Amino acid sequence: MSPRADINAALRTLNRLTPVGYFVGLHIRFAAPLMQFQTYPEQWSEFYSSNGYALRDPTIAWGFSTTGACRWSNLPVPDPFSILKDAADHGLVYGLTTSHGPISSRTIASFARDDREFTDDEIQEISTTVRRLHSITEPPASLTKAQKEALRCIAEGDRHAAAAAKLGITESAFKARLISVRERLMARTTAEALQRAKEYRLL
């Protein structure tokens, strides 16, 4: 199974287990995730963003302080801005947050239901799925010299034919390098691959 197919399979599992939605922030570095997925109701997402809750969210504070899984009803972190009450008012009545990975590349994910608490078995399955997503999306430690050369040509604005000529290879060989770097960085487009390479500090 390709990394993209594996990611999609994991997300289908999360969709099945979380009827009201979820937010998964993978490999949070410099206060931003390298990749994220979100299925919460649009009204809640807009309310959350407009109130600047990300910097005050007790689930995120808990996720940075430890690893594991915790039901929102058991969070040992203060919620002075009543964010969890606001979430419940928007249908996110029962929740779960998981945290995984080193603090330098932490994955934090939250999940919601409107009918009941998550069971222990569901928490185990969700936690396993989040750990798999974290592993699948681990940024590569490096790119090959050929992959870096191809991306640098794109960054400099070269078209495929010009880049191939500059590198002394055929245009099809150049395109093959771009395909390989997109696969390595799990990017849908070359532009996305270039952006991720910069974010991962691989160029």
Rank of each mutant, 00 (worst) to 15 (best):
G157Y: 04
D120T: 13
A155T: 08
D115S: 14
I7T: 10
G101I: 00
F23L: 13
Q195C: 07
L26T: 07
L11W: 04
F23V: 14
F81W: 13
A5V: 07
R29W: 09
R182L: 06
K85C: 03
Q43K: 11
L92Y: 00
N8E: 15
G68Y: 09
A32M: 11
E122M: 03
I108Y: 02
R196Q: 09
I154T: 11
R182I: 09
S135T: 15
S49W: 08
A69N: 01
A150L: 06
R184H: 10
T128Y: 02
L96D: 02
L202G: 04
R16Q: 15
S110F: 07
N15Y: 06
H100M: 06
R159Y: 14
D57T: 04
H90Q: 10
Q195T: 13
W72P: 00
P78G: 07
R56H: 12
T144C: 10
C70W: 06
F37W: 11
P139L: 05
L203D: 10
S99D: 06
A9L: 13
T128N: 08
I179R: 15
I154H: 14
M186Q: 12
I83W: 04
D86N: 11
L17K: 05
R184W: 08
S50M: 10
V77T: 06
S180W: 05
P102W: 04
E138Y: 12
D79N: 08
R152A: 13
T98A: 07
